[in-house]
Simulated scan of single mutants.
Amino acid sequence: MTARRLWALVLGTLLLLGGATAYTLRAAADHPNAANTGADAGFGLDGPRDALWFRDTATGRVARQDPAAPGGRITGGPRCDRFHAAGGTALCLQRRPGLPARSYVLVLDRRLREVRRMSLPGIPNRARVSPSGHVLAWTAFASGDSYNTSAFATRTSILDLRTGYLIKNIEQIPLTLDGRRHHAPDVNYWGVSFAADDNRFYATVATGGHTYLVEGDLRNWSARALKENVECPSLSPDGTRIAYKKKVSTDPAAPWRLYVLDLATLREHPLAETRSVDDQASWTGPGTVAYAYGGAVWSVPADGTGAPRRTADGASSPVVPR
């Protein structure tokens, strides 16, 4: 073998090794655990009763409100773009880098340790855990990144942790609209909220240029529309009311207002928050809802009285795990 051929072989080997190393580093960087995104030791859902949890905007990690801590919070959870928790289970949605848009769904235990991971196409948008912690739902934008356009499409999934059964997209659930079975290619679901029985759920369905509140039945695999112009429903702890955003204006900069609906009478009333909130509100108690607006978490009485109160700066995805 000549010296020239020997050097060519060595150079080729080095290039292959370099390519393999670069691929390994890229794959590691793409994996969220590579950036130390797990929960800190001792940081879990067993915090003070009625404490508020949220996503800390500065770090992207889950935090717990603590007036005695520096900055009024303890930040020790995993990195999440959307977060929710109930019944000792947490759901964390993480957007991954690159195009096309893709994400991870992380199921976490009470200590916020990862117990299951799934890939998710699209941009994470809504996350919900049932009160028991047994059933999870998440919504991602399959196209577009805002509800305030006509060019968006969503994909909503439901996972039963007791059986491991995953419904990748609930769009095929039989839908009853105006008393008749509804079939249409433009059906989109988003913003699931579960009842305490782990069977009944509420969500938004969009079709024909309208949005509706639907009540779903997992066991019988059916859904029926209850009321028009209801988006991102959130069921109250006692299961009697829905907090939601209602489209009240054609102004694309401020189309929504938060409302509460009585499920028994289907009567609604606006909340004292008059700004346009694009979020799925979270009940932090029997008479209070919290939501993200303008880079902070706010809360407001659910009966329409009072005034919005700034609860946490640099925060989103508020929840009081129970």
Rank of each mutant, 00 (worst) to 15 (best):
T207F: 04
D278K: 10
A272S: 02
P321S: 10
W138V: 00
F141H: 03
N36S: 13
D46G: 09
L136K: 00
F201M: 07
G44L: 04
R180Y: 15
H84P: 03
S317W: 07
V320N: 06
R162C: 02
G239N: 00
I167L: 09
W53R: 10
S316M: 04
R241M: 08
T305N: 01
D313T: 04
L45N: 01
A85K: 00
D40L: 15
D178N: 10
P237Y: 11
R73I: 05
L226C: 01
V115G: 14
V107H: 02
A196Y: 09
I74T: 09
S143I: 06
A315S: 13
G44D: 04
L52W: 01
L17I: 13
S103G: 07
D262S: 14
L112D: 08
L226D: 04
G164K: 03
D238G: 05
T59D: 01
R310G: 08
F141D: 00
S222N: 15
P321I: 11
G122R: 03
T274S: 14
K245E: 14
R117L: 09
G216S: 10
R64F: 06
T149D: 05
L9W: 15
T139A: 12
W7I: 06
V187L: 08
M118D: 10
S119I: 08
G295Q: 09
V10N: 14
S132H: 08
F194W: 03
G285L: 05
Y293M: 05
L235Y: 05
D197Y: 00
L258C: 07
D66K: 15
F43G: 09
T204D: 02
G295I: 11
S249G: 15
V115P: 08
P270D: 03
P237D: 15
H210S: 15
F83D: 00
E114R: 09
Q65T: 11
R275I: 03
G294L: 13
R55G: 08
R116G: 14
T156H: 10
T311A: 00
M118G: 02
A69P: 06
F54G: 01
P301F: 02
G18Y: 08
H134W: 08
A34Y: 09
S276Y: 03
L16N: 15
L91Y: 00
A101K: 05
I167W: 08
T2G: 06
R322D: 11
G47Y: 04
A20M: 12
Y104M: 10
L235E: 11
V260G: 05
G122I: 06
R200T: 12
Y147H: 06
R110S: 07
N33Y: 11
N169D: 14
A292N: 05
C80T: 06
F141E: 00
I123C: 13
T89M: 02
T13F: 14
P97W: 12
A254K: 12
L52T: 00
L14K: 02
I158R: 01
P237A: 14
A151H: 13
T265Y: 03
L17R: 05
R26I: 10
S143C: 13
R73P: 00
E231F: 07
P270K: 12
G304W: 09
L177C: 03
I158M: 01
V277Y: 00
D30W: 06
V107R: 01
H31Y: 10
N148M: 10
G42N: 15
D313S: 09
